[in-house]
Amino acid sequence: MASPSSTARVPRSAARGRHPGSATREQGPGAPRPGSRVRRQLPTSPWLFAAPGILVVGVFILYPFVSTLVNAFTDRRTLMPGEYVGLANFRELLHDEMFWTGLRNSTLYVLGVVPALVLLPLLLALLVQKNIPGITFFRSAFYTPVVASIVVVGLIWVWLLDERGLVNALLEAIGVGKVGFLSDQWLLLLSAMAVTVWRGLGYYMIIYLAALANVPRELHEAAQVDGAGAVRRFFTVTVPAVRSTMVLVAALSSVSAFKVFSEVYLMAGPDGGPAGEDTTLVMLVQRTGTGLTGRVGYASAISVVVFLVTVVLMLLVLRADRKEET
C-alpha cells in the first residue's frame, strides 16, 4: 500500500547522482534545449502519454466518486434527476432495518474472516516454505482457488454444502447427520465466511512467503539453541519478524471482507435469504440502486457509509499497529 507521499516522490536524475548533465536535460518545456527535436516533443507528448489513463480514471473512478457524494444528498432515481434533500437519506438509514441488518452482517464478516486470514495463510506459508521435493506443486495447487472466479467458487460450495451435497453425505457417513449449512441464517453467513477464507488462503500465503524469505535464519537457530520449541519460536521469532506483513494482510482482508458481495449473493440468493436476513451492505447497495426504479440517491448514501467504514477500518488497523509497536 503506497502512501500518496511515497508514490508521489519524484526521483530527480540529479538526486540519483548520475551524470550531472542529465539533471538539466529533461527539465521541461521551460528549459532551453539544445536540440529542436526535443522542443517539438516535450510540450505535448508527456500529456499524450498520460492522457488515456487520466481520462479513464477521471471519468470512471473519480467522477463517480464525487457524484456518489453528491447523489447521497439527493432523491435521485435511475430515470429521475432528483433534487437536493439534505440529510434525508441518512435519516432514513437510521430507521431502515435492512440497513442495520446489512451493517451487522458486513461487520460480522470482518470479525469472522480477518483473524482467520491473518493466521491461517501464515501457517500455510510456513508449511510450504521449506524446499522439499514436490513443494512447488503444492504451492501452485494451494493457489488454484484464487485463480477461479468467485462465481465458480461460490457455486462449487453451494453444491458441496447442499443438503444432499458432499459435505452432508460425509457428515452422515460418520454419523453426525445432516447440517443445514445453506438454510440457517447464521450457518449460511458462517459458510460464506469459510468460502472467503478458503479462497483467500493461497493469495495471502504468497504474500507471507515473500515476507518469510526475509526472516534471517540465524534468529531461528539462535532460538533453537536456546531451547525454544517450534511453537515458542513461532511466537517469538516468526510473528515479530512478519508483523508488518500481518498488519498489511489485516488491512487488505478487512477492507475486502466489509465489502463482501458475491459469496453471500450466490449462497443466499439475490435477496439475501427469504427475509433478507443475510443481506450485506454492498448487496443492499446493488439491490437498492440498480434497475429502472433504482433509488440512486439512497443507494449512494449507503455507499458513502461503506466508504467511510473502510476508511475507519484502515485507520483502526494502522492504529492498532502503532500501539503494539510502542
Binding site: P4, A8, V57, L62, T68, R76, G289, G294
Partner: peptide, 26 residues
C-alpha cells in the same frame, strides 16, 4: 506530473464497490 501521480493514487484508494451505482449512472 505530481498532480497526475496523485490522481492515480487517489483513484486506487477508492473502493470500487462504493462507487458502483454512480458508475452505472455514468
Amino acid at each position: 506530473r505530481r498532480l497526475a501521480t496523485l490522481v492515480f493514487v487517489l483513484a486506487m484508494l477508492v473502493p470500487a464497490e462504493s462507487i458502483i451505482i454512480a458508475q452505472f449512472t455514468t
